[in-house]
Each structure stands twice: as C-alpha cells, then as structure tokens.
Amino acid sequence: MSVLSGVSALVTGGTSGIGLATAMALAGRGADVAVAGRDEKRGRQVVAAIAEAGGTADFIAAELHGESSARELARAAVARFGRIDVLVNNAGVFPFGPTEQTTEADFDAVFGLNVRAPYFLVAELAPAMARRGHGAIVNVTTAAAAYGAAGLGLYGASKAALVLLTKAWAAEYGPHGVRVNAVSPGPTRTEGTAPRGAALDRAAMAGPARRPGTAEEIAEAIVFLASAEQSSFVHGAILPVDGGRAAV
C-alpha cells in the first residue's frame, strides 16, 4: 500500500515549481491531491500528468490574498474530496529590491499571500483535522527567513512570520494529533527563480552542496513531513533543505 493511500491533500501554488513537484510526489505516494493555482490551463495539465502517472488530482482555481480567498479555497477542496488531511502552504511571492522602492501595495501583496492566506487556510482546515485526531500541515518558508540580506527584507520578514506561525500552530494543534512543520529551502532552480540566472548559482555556492536545489528535492522533504508513517514524532520543526546553507 502506498504510504499516503487514503489521504487527501491540498497544495497551494501547485501548478509550477516546488508546488507542482509536491503535488506530483504526493499523488505518486497515493494521496488524492487538490491542486490550487491561478492558471487554469497549467492546473489542468498538472491534473492530467498526475492521472497519466496513475494518481488522482483535481484543480481548483484560486487567487489567494487573504481570509476570504483562503477560506473559499479550503471549503472548495473539502467539497471536492470530503476532507483535507494534509495542507501544504506553498504559494508565495518572492520579491527582491530596496526597501525605499517598496510601496504599501507591494507590502500588502506579499503579506497577503505569504502570511494571511496560510493563516486563514489553517484557521479553516486545522480544527476539522483536530476533531478527527490527525492531520499534517507543511509550510514552505525560506533560508532567507533566518538571516538579513540586502533587498530581501520584505520577503524574508513574511517568511519569518510563517516560521513563527509553524511553531505556534504546532503548539496549538499538536496535542490534538495535527503535526505542523515547515521546510526551509535554500536557492532552488525553478521557472520562478530562472530570471536570477547566475546569481542563483552564486548564492548556492555558500552551502556545502555548492549547487542550487531542485523542486523535486524540496518536494521529497515535504512528503516526508506530510507522512504520519515517516514523521510521526516531528512537530514544530523547520527542516532546512538548503544544500547545507544553514550549517555555514
């Protein structure tokens, strides 16, 4: 039997990059996956790819920005699959730039997607997990949440908030059987980070692996944390998947 057979999962930002790799990996382990994203064409392609590989998935169009959109997505996912056992808060934006060039609209957009949306997805889904006595929430943060870097203040701050929320939710829901953890990727090569070009390689050279990670490598860590069989005693952890960047 597949390790996630009978499990229903919701992956935000599931049409590209780490989210796409995570949706494929979860489905490959037997989970039924709700793939959430903005691009319906790409979403249908992901669902078709999962089906071709023998898995089960459905696409839910979602433009996440805060409470109403998050709760609407959560309810749609529950309506499709009956319940959600695993929530992967992956959707996010990662702007780079000087503080003085950041507008209030920029600030609100980043915190809306990176913090408010995960917060209210958890608010909507975690209580039902707790009533059932089991569930897993995996937040996708970043290595940049743990150190200061010029141009990364807004992005790093939003993900640092998610790090704290991971620990707070673990304390809140863990006693009821809901495991809440996070992965902290380092430089990772995806279509979203492609514009960084050689800068991504230079950033990766700071870690012992001396190369960027792949979306699939991050996804494997997410699957590990999502699986009660594999990580039953892991609560409130921030798992670095960063080529060793946290060690130096």
Results as ranks from 00 to 15, higher is better:
I18A: 09
L20P: 00
A21Q: 09
T22Y: 04
T22E: 12
A23T: 04
A23F: 04
A23Q: 07
A23S: 15
A25N: 06
L26C: 05
A27E: 08
G28Y: 06
R29F: 03
G30N: 03
A31M: 09
A31L: 10
D32H: 13
A34Y: 02
A34F: 08
A34V: 15
V35Y: 06
V35G: 07
A36S: 14
D39V: 12
D39K: 11
D39T: 14
E40Q: 13
R42S: 11
R44V: 07
Q45M: 14
Q45K: 14
V46R: 07
A49G: 12
I50F: 10
A51T: 13
A53C: 10
G54H: 11
G55S: 12
T56K: 15
T56D: 12
A57Y: 01
D58M: 08
F59G: 04
F59C: 02
E63R: 11
E63T: 10
E63F: 14
E63K: 08
L64I: 07
L64W: 05
H65L: 10
G66R: 09
E67V: 03
E67C: 09
S68M: 10
S68I: 09
S69R: 10
A70K: 00
E72A: 14
E72V: 03
E72Q: 13
L73P: 02
A74F: 12
A74C: 06
A74P: 05
A74R: 02
A76M: 05
A77G: 01
A77Q: 04
A77M: 05
V78M: 12
V78K: 11
V78G: 02
A79H: 12
R80N: 04
R80L: 13
G82A: 05
G82H: 10
R83L: 08
I84Y: 11
I84Q: 07
L87T: 07
L87V: 08
V88T: 07
N89G: 02
N89Q: 05
N89A: 04
N89K: 04
N89H: 02
N89F: 00
N90S: 09
N90M: 05
A91S: 12
G92Q: 03
G92R: 00
G92H: 06
V93C: 00
F94G: 14
P95N: 08
F96Y: 14
F96S: 00
F96R: 01
P98G: 01
P98M: 03
P98S: 13
P98C: 01
E100L: 12
Q101E: 14
Q101C: 02
Q101A: 11
T102R: 07
T102H: 03
T103E: 06
E104Q: 11
A105V: 14
A105M: 10
D106N: 13
F107Q: 01
D108V: 08
D108E: 15
V110F: 01
G112V: 01
G112M: 05
L113I: 14
L113W: 09
N114E: 11
N114V: 00
V115Q: 06
V115I: 10
R116D: 11
A117F: 07
P118G: 08
F120C: 08
L121A: 07
L121F: 12
A123M: 06
E124D: 11
A126V: 04
P127A: 07
P127L: 09
